[in-house]
Design a protein around this nucleic acid. Structure first.
Lengths: 169, 169
DNA sequence: ACCGTCATGTAATCGGTTACATGATTCT
DNA sequence: AGAATCATGTAACCGATTACATGACGGT
């Protein structure tokens, strides 16, 4: 029940658990892979440690299976929901830098054309992936993920524009 | 002289030191603030620890002032230059996820219009800042930083497009 | 003189990454 | 039956953030 600092990872766990009755770390891993992971990936090891932290702080309940694998199953508590709601309702004015490794290379003098050709492939591939996700998505999908996906697509397109310009001198 | 893993932070330090004869951590801090920092910021404390690591591994020389502040002055070695060159010449196929806190909130159900209005301000401000940097930049500035700045501007514009659409339902 | 801000640095903490391991399943 | 892959978990390490401190300097 100690106070803990809630990080983006915390909110990802809380957010996912707000959608389902309960989940094991492995369930979380799969959920991340299919959704938020595109925008903010999480190492699987963290999906073991983070819920544990959150449970200790009262945001989740932890329930260990008897027998068999003795999997841990987590469920969100009212306190967890409250924390999630509060975070969501307070629009952040943070934003992330690009922090793109390729761009860093460009910054420090990498050959634009060569770098661009590599990066173009990567981003075109990613764009295709996103568009496929979008195509598969049912129309009754929640708005949040859908909009986030749109953002992802927009930025991939921007990357492609950028690198394409560099590719041809 | 041990082997160390070179991180993006390492390359930022190496890259900056490849531009000047020598620099103190504080010099590095200022250099970062005015250039790469826009794309990949570094905490000032790391500009003390990272050069130390790099020096131990032979990528930099460390030289402590006698008397006065006893500042540490670092300079890149041939080995450091080689490492930098090698990294630059090998186009990475890595890329970064958006990892945008606002987008994460949107994903988990934040009110689009409200969030958008906050985020719009932030990104418009950032764009203005970038454009100012661009305007100030001399035309003989190195290509890398200039191109990286263009990328930054492009993405800020993309963010603005995105949030603007959400701002008005 | 005093205050605020810039300059400069160290230490502790901690989230996140990497590495390591073993149990189940599925496929040939 | 054996190989490969998926499922599931723990432990150690380490880079990065946060917090803490003091010195210099310009302005009122």
């Amino acid at each position: 029940m100690q106070g803990v600092r809630l990080t983006p990872t915390s909110y990802i766990v809380l957010g996912l658990l707000s959608w389902v009755a309960e989940a094991t770390p492995y369930d979380l891993k799969r959920m991340v892979a299919g959704s938020v992971g595109n925008l903010w990936s999480v190492q699987h090891a963290q999906l073991y440690t983070e819920p544990e932290r959150l449970a200790k702080a009262g945001y989740l309940t932890e329930d260990r299976e008897r027998g068999g694998r003795r999997r841990r199953r987590y469920a969100i508590t009212e306190r967890g929901r409250a924390a999630l709601r509060e975070w969501i309702s307070m629009p952040t004015d943070d934003f992330t830098e690009l922090r793109d490794p390729g761009l860093l290379q460009l910054f420090f003098g990498a050959d634009p054309a060569e770098l661009a050709s590599t990066q173009l492939h990567v981003h075109e591939e990613k764009l295709r992936e996103y568009e496929e996700v979008r195509a598969r998505g049912s129309s009754d999908a929640p708005a949040g993920p859908r909009l986030a996906l749109e953002a992802g697509i927009g930025h991939e397109r921007e990357w492609i524009r950028f690198w394409r310009r560099l590719a041809k001198g």
